[in-house]
């Protein structure tokens, strides 16, 4: 009995010790990577979604309730992308700070420029999001806006760390300026390139990079590609000079590979999120890899 009590006390003490840092829980791994970069040692950042996972379909694991119950800040994607799993976790989190409207709640979609906002949302159009396309995290520019909002929250929640947060922000801003310049220069020769997407996940990156979407393999968002639709799409894009087909790591590649072969394009399985594959630990790694795959050297 004494051993049990001592063990419990030790575990609770360990839990308390870990609370010294600002606990940031994010749904998207990119947000956690940004928070870790901006917060340094003052922040403990953790993402609920894995980079290789479809963010639409995440299990509402009870362990996430625990993380949210102890979080100082929640950063979510918003626009309905997490509606199938996050609300039930938030309700059970017993943490007023991370509820909508709480001081530790940040819906990142509120600070980005949302594209494809439907005038009328109808499920006959597929799994559309009434607030607009939620895949803004494929654009460096939109992630920069989210980083600004995270910085504001860190300053608000931990004013004692202002000096460090501001220094880190200046480094982040400078790095962003340099890296985006390099990425744009690398992608510039491909300006205007038509791309076929698997899901409408890439429109933000396409807009940022100056490419254009020639269509999607999914006939409607969330509806898996059918042979009939893909055949029609193949006819439609003939003569447009399609050179690349883009998709996330979590979608099957069978049909898209055949489509790419028949249309004379390359199939690129791109990392839409940090952690989508080995070695992609920061947003810089993610976009470096994307640019490398889209515009390989030579």
């Amino acid at each position: 009995m004494r051993i049990l009590v001592s063990t419990l006390a030790l575990l609770l003490a360990l839990g308390q010790a870990a609370q010294a840092k600002l606990r940031v829980v994010t749904t998207l791994p990119d947000f956690a990577a940004i928070a870790a970069e901006l917060g340094g040692e003052r922040v403990e950042a953790e993402a609920l979604i894995r980079g290789s996972q479809d963010p639409h379909f995440v299990d509402a694991k009870p362990s996430f309730i625990l993380k949210l119950s102890r979080a100082d800040l929640l950063v979510r994607i918003g626009l309905g992308l997490e509606d199938g799993w996050l609300p039930v976790l938030l309700t059970q989190a017993r943490n007023a700070d991370v509820q909508p409207g709480g001081r530790g709640y940040l819906d990142a979609s509120q600070v980005v420029r949302v594209l494809e906002v439907p005038v009328k949302a109808d499920r006959a159009m597929g799994d559309v999001h009434g607030g607009g396309n939620p895949h803004y995290f494929t654009s460096p520019e939109e992630l920069f806006r989210v980083a600004q909002a995270i910085e504001r929250k860190l300053l608000e929640l931990d004013p004692d760390g202002a000096e460090e947060f501001q220094a880190r922000w200046r480094a982040f801003e400078e790095r962003f300026r340099q890296r985006t310049g390099a990425w744009r220069r690398r992608l510039a020769p491909l300006q205007g390139m038509p791309v076929v997407e698997y899901h409408r996940s890439w429109i933000y990156f396409l807009e940022w990079s100056g490419f254009r979407s020639a269509g999607a393999l999914e006939p409607k968002p969330g509806v898996p590609p059918s042979a009939g639709h893909v055949t029609r799409l193949l006819r439609e894009v003939q003569g447009q000079g399609i050179r690349q087909v883009w998709q996330e790591v979590y979608h099957p590649t069978g049909l898209s590979r055949v489509f790419a072969e028949k249309s004379g394009a390359r199939l690129l399985v791109l990392p839409s999120m940090v952690g989508a594959s080995e070695g992609l630990d920061t947003i810089w790694d993610k976009f470096d890899r994307m640019v490398e795959l889209i515009a390989p050297p030579g």
Binding site: L79, G80, S109, Q110, V111, V112, R113, V114, V117, G130, G131, G132, R145, Q148, A149, E151, R152, L155, E156, P159, Q166, W169, E173
Partner: peptide
């Protein structure tokens, strides 16, 4: 009240970007 955020290219939150 808390000090305003440090100078830089801050953007105001686009709170009205959703019809929801």
């Amino acid at each position: 009240a808390p000090a305003p955020p440090p100078p830089g290219s801050w953007l105001a939150p686009l709170v009205a970007n959703t019809p929801l």
